[in-house]
Computed example of a mutant assay.
Amino acid sequence: MKVSLDRSCLERRQVWVYAAAIVVGLALGSRASGAGTVAEALVWPALGLLLYATFLQVPLLDLATAWRDRRFTLAVVVGNFVIMPLVVWGMVPVLPDDPGVRLGVLLVLLVPCTDWFISFTQMAGGDVSRAIAVTPVNLVLQLMLLPLYLVVMAREEVTGLVTVDAVASALGVVALPLIAAALTEKWLDVRQRRHVVRERWAWAAVPLLATVVFLIATAQVDAVLGALDVLPFVSPVFVAFLLAAALAAKALAVAFTLPVTQARTLAFSLGTRNSFLVLPLAISLPQGYEVAAVVVVMQSLVELLGMIVFVWLVPIAYRRRSTGTPRR
Rank of each mutant, 00 (worst) to 15 (best):
F214H: 12
L63Q: 02
L107A: 08
V254L: 13
A180V: 10
M1L: 11
L243S: 14
T73W: 01
A154Q: 05
A223L: 04
I118R: 01
T261Y: 00
L148T: 15
E11W: 00
G25I: 02
A246I: 05
I316K: 15
R70D: 08
P59F: 02
E290M: 05
L145H: 07
F276Q: 06
F238K: 03
G90D: 00
S119K: 04
R193I: 03
Q14F: 04
S169P: 00
F233K: 15
L258S: 09
Y289H: 07
W67Y: 15
F117Q: 08
V221A: 14
A293M: 04
P232N: 14
A204G: 09
P259K: 03
P232G: 13
I22W: 01
R102G: 13
L74F: 08
F268M: 07
V206L: 11
V137P: 05
L86G: 13
L183K: 13
L281C: 04
V105L: 04
Y149G: 15
L10P: 01
V23Q: 10
L242A: 12
A133N: 08
E185N: 14
R194E: 09
T184Q: 12
T325H: 03
Y318R: 07
V140C: 11
A64E: 15
R13I: 04
T218G: 08
R102H: 06
T65V: 14
R68F: 03
V291Q: 03
R31E: 15
F55M: 12
L63W: 03
V164K: 07
A64F: 03
Y149K: 13
S30W: 02
R102D: 11
